[in-house]
Nucleic acid binder design. Sequence first.
DNA 1: GCCGTTTTCGGCCCGACTGTTTTCAGTCG
Length: 585
Amino acid sequence: MATMATNSDLAHLFEEFTAILEILGANKFKVLAFQKVARTLDSLADDAAELARTPGALEAIDGIGASSAAKIREFVERGNIAELDELRAKVPPGLLGLLGISGLGPKTIKLFWEQGGVTDKASLKTKLATGELLQLAGMGEKKLKGIEESIALSEQSAGRIRLGAALPLAERVVAMMLAVKGVRRVAYAGSLRRGKETIGDVDILCASDDPAAAHAAFRDQPGVAKVLVSGDTKTSIVTNDGVQIDLRTLPDASFGAALMYFTGSKEHNVKLRERAIAQGYRLNEYGLFPDDGDAAPQHRGVQPIVAGTEEDVFAKLGLAWVPPELREDRGEILVAEKKAIPTLIELSDLKAELHAHTRASDGSMTIEGLVDAAKGKGFHTIAVTDHSKSSVQANGLSPERLRAHVGAIHAIAAKRSDIIVLAGSEVDILADGRLDYDDELLALLDLVVASPHNSLKQEGDVATKRLIKAIEHPAVRILGHPTGRIINGRTGLEPDLRRVFAAAKANNVALELNANPLRLDLRDTHIKAALDAGCLISINCDTHERSNLDLARYGILTARRGWLTAEQCINCWDAKRLLAWLKRK
DNA sequence: GCCGTTTTCGGCCCGACTGTTTTCAGTCG
């Protein structure tokens, strides 16, 4: 059998397909189709290599047709894809990376390659410096200068930044813009409003009586490294930290349509606009218009049918309002058509933190400090879950220290009538699936959160068995950050989650959604798959210091992207129900 | 390449900005 192909391996192959096809100038819809296959594979909770064994299973996935399914099977069985190998031979590999340079697209790359002799970034830089590319059709001083600057910028770009960095940044910009003269409304949109775990650039919408002043204030704000473009309705800047922020100004009357348009996702928008066309409308960022066959109705004095609020536009299209976190073209439009969008979990639904650390291991708070912090959030329950002995780097507790710690926690619990304090532990799941404490010790605890912390590069099937063994242990109630991934850091475990979820369901173990923006583990699509498998979710901040309890917002955004309701999250249950559940397995 | 409550063939969203164009192509989101 060939090497194990993970979903991300397969996704990368299809990304490579699209890059080569773009540069070769292939049919753009074919490129789009491959891009969708790559995206679909990347967010698939099932193991694609596993599905490849069942006839028709891959083809049943939306966006994957017979051709792509055959390519996946070919790779799983033989370790290569003949068509991709042929394509690779046609294009210098160094060209593919050039697609990441902003302002440089496939047409220009092809021109540089075929007529300018460019084969990679190094040769591009050289030829830009000598000025020889100026001879090529359509190339002027400004354009080449812009490409040179983009290369420099790309080398210091932050790339996709984490939600935990992007959201506070956007909130600062929104507050700044609200203070500008003439500004009526400001909101962040884009993937940030959808709550994605990483953000490519920050989109800010602004309704203003004086758009020019808004753009000027935006360009002149502190921390701007470069103004990329600036027109009547759009300005793009790059911050000193390498983050791109776009400002769009628009009429106040079309704020709702613009918010929808710039919130995306692109795929969701395409579906909505196709729906609009089918109903005799035309949808753009200025509103929903009657379709009179001509483009840009807003410039011809045509009045939109609806434009002011998102709710109005969705309603006119026969749809329930779709929460931004669901706008990913993952079936939400069909559900909105049936008016069956679930009431998603909200921050105010959280009533307990079940994964928290104190000074006993690697936290910064005392037990009392942690309990007070949880009480301050209005919680009815806080679980103290310090690290177990194998987490030496986190000052994990020896059996002796754990016994003493449990005693100290119970003593404090006995004194508090305002909040329930549980003595628990975040117990390491060792590489082979055994737990880090013996059963006698585990029996002393009110709650066991079992988490993987090391051997995070082990093979997928080994990881699957490891996690399932932990889930089947009678003491375990929550599986903590199940994959151990760090966003923009490490991949973590890649188990067969379908089997892990089935085991969690069978053993009545809740799966954690770790709200720390470095983790967000399980991720959005995994939450959805876990819910489809009938599992319960536990959202926790993995609290190490007081301010960590504020990280819950990121967990909530991710949970909503996974279609989670409060009913399916044990942290939202009342104390009686939660305690009864913790005791029963 | 993918897909189907008009379709298994023929479509596949829409507009802004820039630079090079004498009316538009390329890129981006």
